[in-house]
């Protein structure tokens, strides 16, 4: 088994009296894709915010290659190689598509011309080269989500956190997004994918972690989790029950 890239240990996050995450533990090896599933309000985005440094956990620890990153600010976590997208896209609207990606590329490449070249490479990888010079605000929703992924990739992360990048996409766009996530994994970047679109996550995830009311209720290969009675009751519905043995 490859060494652990990310290890979440007993992560708990409370907001006053509300417990968003309780004792969440899971881990991820380099180059793995893990799906993070659960009904609305299960605490998936809270996990993301803790992993990416936007929330300091109430208790528990987050280890990146054995080093604790819990409580570090987002910019430090990013510098250590954790990139994220946002559930509601947050592109830089006054900039062009290329400039959006350049902001990210500047983290590893301080010279602007080098960052521009790296940004163009990233845009070619995600298929947005044709839009490079356009104002980012003019992109379609699907393109904006792809731009967020491109931007996240341009900080050259080891771990990529994708927050519902397939929500609201047409089925052909979902297919494209799935292919893109696979190609990202093939570059050796591990992904944690929060997704409601089952067609998007089930075929590509190495493992699936299911949250309900802030707790982990299942953790395993997609087929096993999809046939787990608790998961079906909580979330999936009969439609996604895996064929029994």
């Amino acid at each position: 088994m490859s060494p652990l890239l990310l290890e979440v240990r007993g992560l708990t996050k409370r907001f006053g009296g509300l417990t968003a995450n309780e004792d969440v533990s899971f881990s991820l090896s380099a180059g793995e894709i893990v799906g993070l599933l659960g009904p609305n309000g299960a605490g998936k985005t809270t996990v993301f915010n803790s992993l990416a440094g936007f929330f300091a956990p109430t208790s528990g620890d987050i280890l990146l290659e054995g080093r604790s990153i819990a409580g570090l600010p987002p910019e430090r976590v990013a510098a250590l190689g954790v990139a994220r997208t946002f559930q509601i896209v947050r592109i830089f609207k006054s900039m062009t598509v290329r400039e959006n990606v350049m902001v990210a590329a500047l983290l590893r490449h301080r010279a602007v011309p080098v960052a521009r070249r790296k940004a163009d490479e990233a845009l070619a990888f995600t298929g947005l080269s044709g839009r490079a010079g356009d104002p980012a605000g003019q992109l379609t929703v699907a393109e904006q989500k792809r731009l967020e992924v491109t931007r996240a990739l341009a900080i050259e992360p080891r771990l990529l956190l994708l927050d519902e990048v397939m929500a609201g996409l047409t089925s052909s766009e979902v297919h494209e997004a799935v292919e893109m996530v696979k190609r990202i994994r093939d570059r050796g970047i591990a992904c944690v994918v929060v997704e409601h679109v089952m067609e998007g996550i089930m075929p590509i995830a190495d493992r699936v972690v299911v949250l309900e009311r802030g707790r982990v209720i299942a953790d395993g290969p997609p087929a096993a989790v999809a046939s787990d009675a608790a998961v079906i009751a909580a979330y999936l519905g009969e439609e996604y029950r895996a064929p029994g043995p």
């Binding site: 910019e75 990139a83 946002f86 990210a104 602007v112 996240a152 900080i155």
Partner: peptide
């Protein structure tokens, strides 16, 4: 404006949280 700082400033103005997630210290 044309330096790294200039790009970061515009990013901070547009979307501070996104800028942070890309390694920019506000």
């Amino acid at each position: 404006a044309r330096s790294r700082t200039g790009y970061y400033l515009r990013a901070i103005k547009d979307e501070p949280d996104a800028a942070r997630s890309l390694g920019v210290s506000l």
